[in-house]
C-alpha cells in the first residue's frame, strides 16, 4: 500500500473526483496559481485548467454563496476556505442557504457541495486563525460534518463527500497535512457516518476526532506501559454521529473519556456525554469525563497555547481519574 501525506491524500481525492465528474470544480483563495495555501490543490490547475480550478478574490461570503447557487443549478462545487476560521465571514451563506434551502423549498432543490479547509490550533497564529468549529456546524440541521484524522480517511471521506448530494463541511487539521500513512490505492470510499476503532483496548473508551485522535493514541501508548489498556475511537464523522460504535465499545470497557479540541461549552463531546448517560447508564462504572480546549480565546504564545489545547498530559491524567 502506498504511503501518502494527509495533504497528498486530499489532493488525490480531488483529482480523482474531478476526473470522474465534469461538474466537480474547486474554488477558493489561492487554490489555482498558488497551488493552495497549504498545497492541497497542488498541480490541479495544470491538470484541469482555470475553468475548474478557480482562484477567488478574498470574498468568502460572495464566493461561498455563488458556489451554493451553482450547486442549486446542478454543479458539484468544492469550496476551499484557507482556514475554517475564515468561514465565519460566510456563515450566513452556509447556514441559511446551503443547509436550509432544501427544507425550505419542500425538497425541490439539493445542494451537492463540499466546504473544506484547514482548522484547529497549535500553530501559534492567534485567536482569529485557530478555530475548531466542527461543533458550530454540527449544530445546524442539514449539514454533514466530517473531520478526518488519517490520510486514508482524508482521501476516502473527501471522495464520499464530493459524491454526496448534500452539503458537507469537511474540516481538515492544519497540523496533520504533513502526516504520512498508508492509503489504499484506487477508487476507495470511506463511509460517511461511520466511526473507526483506531486502537483496541479493554479498560476505557476514548472518543476523539481529528488532531485529538492522535493525542489520544499517543496517550494510550504511554498508558500501556503502565498496564492501562485504552480503546481509541476516531469518530471521523461528527454528524451524523455513529453512536453504535461508541455503545459497542462502552459495553466492553464501562468507562468513557472524550477528547476534543472544541471549547468545553457545547462542544461535540457534550452531546456524546449526554447520549452515553442517557442510553448507556447501566454500562457505566464511572462518570463520563472530557478533555477539551480551555474556555479562553486562543493565545499566541506557544507555551500558553499548548496549555489551552487538550494535550497528552491532560489526557493521561483524565484516564487515571476515570479509572481511580
Amino acid at each position: 500500500m502506498p504511503t501518502l501525506t494527509y495533504r497528498e491524500a486530499l489532493n488525490e481525492a480531488l483529482s480523482e473526483e474531478m476526473e470522474r465528474d465534469d461538474r466537480v470544480m474547486l474554488m477558493g483563495e489561492e487554490v489555482a496559481e498558488y497551488d493552495g495555501a497549504y498545497k492541497v490543490s497542488k498541480g490541479l490547475l495544470k491538470k484541469f485548467g482555470p475553468k475548474r480550478i478557480i482562484d477567488t478574490p478574498i470574498s468568502e461570503a460572495g464566493f461561498t454563496g455563488l458556489a451554493i447557487g451553482a450547486a442549486m443549478y446542478g454543479l458539484r462545487p468544492v469550496v476551499e476556505f484557507m482556514t475554517w476560521s475564515f468561514s465565519l465571514v460566510a456563515y450566513d451563506q452556509i447556514i441559511n442557504n446551503a443547509a436550509q434551502i432544501r427544507y425550505m423549498s419542500g425538497g425541490q432543490f439539493s445542494i451537492p457541495i463540499v466546504f473544506r479547509g484547514s482548522s484547529g490550533g497549535g500553530l501559534q497564529v492567534g485567536a482569529t486563525h485557530s478555530h475548531t468549529p466542527e461543533n458550530w456546524y454540527a449544530n445546524v440541521p442539514g449539514l454533514t460534518v466530517i473531520t478526518p484524522s488519517f490520510p486514508d480517511d482524508a482521501k476516502g471521506l473527501l471522495k464520499a463527500a464530493i459524491r454526496s448530494n448534500n452539503p458537507v463541511c469537511f474540516l481538515e487539521n492544519e497540523k496533520l497535512y504533513g502526516y504520512k500513512d498508508e492509503v489504499p490505492e484506487g477508487d476507495v470510499l470511506v463511509e460517511i457516518g461511520k466511526a473507526k476503532v483506531r486502537r483496541e483496548g479493554s479498560d476505557i473508551t476514548i472518543v476523539s476526532n481529528s488532531g485529538s485522535t492522535h493525542r489520544a493514541l499517543n496517550a494510550a501508548k504511554q498508558l500501556e506501559a503502565e498496564g492501562i489498556s485504552c480503546e481509541v475511537i476516531d469518530l471521523r464523522t461528527i454528524k451524523p454521529l455513529d453512536f453504535a460504535t461508541i455503545a459497542e465499545s462502552v459495553a466492553k470497557t464501562n468507562r468513557v473519556l472524550i477528547v476534543e479540541e472544541n471549547k468545553p461549552f457545547a462542544g461535540w463531546g457534550a452531546q456524546v456525554a449526554y447520549q452515553v448517560q442517557r442510553e448507556l447508564f447501566d454500562d457505566l462504572d464511572a462518570p463520563v469525563h472530557r478533555v477539551t480546549s480551555i474556555d479562553v480565546p486562543q493565545p499566541y504564545n506557544g507555551r500558553l497555547e499548548q496549555a489551552v489545547l487538550p494535550n497528552e498530559e491532560r489526557v493521561i491524567a483524565a484516564v487515571k481519574e476515570v479509572l481511580a
Binding site: G62, T64, L66, M72, N97, S105
Partner: peptide, 28 residues
C-alpha cells in the same frame, strides 16, 4: 420556490440571494 419554473426562491436574509443568483449564472 418552484424548481420546475426555474424560480430559485424566495430568500429571507437581505441580500443573501444575490451571491446565489450569481452562482446560478456561473453554472449557466
Amino acid at each position: 420556490f418552484d424548481a420546475k419554473r426555474h424560480f430559485y426562491g424566495g430568500h429571507g436574509i437581505v441580500g443573501g440571494q444575490i451571491p446565489l443568483g450569481t452562482g446560478l449564472a456561473f453554472a449557466q
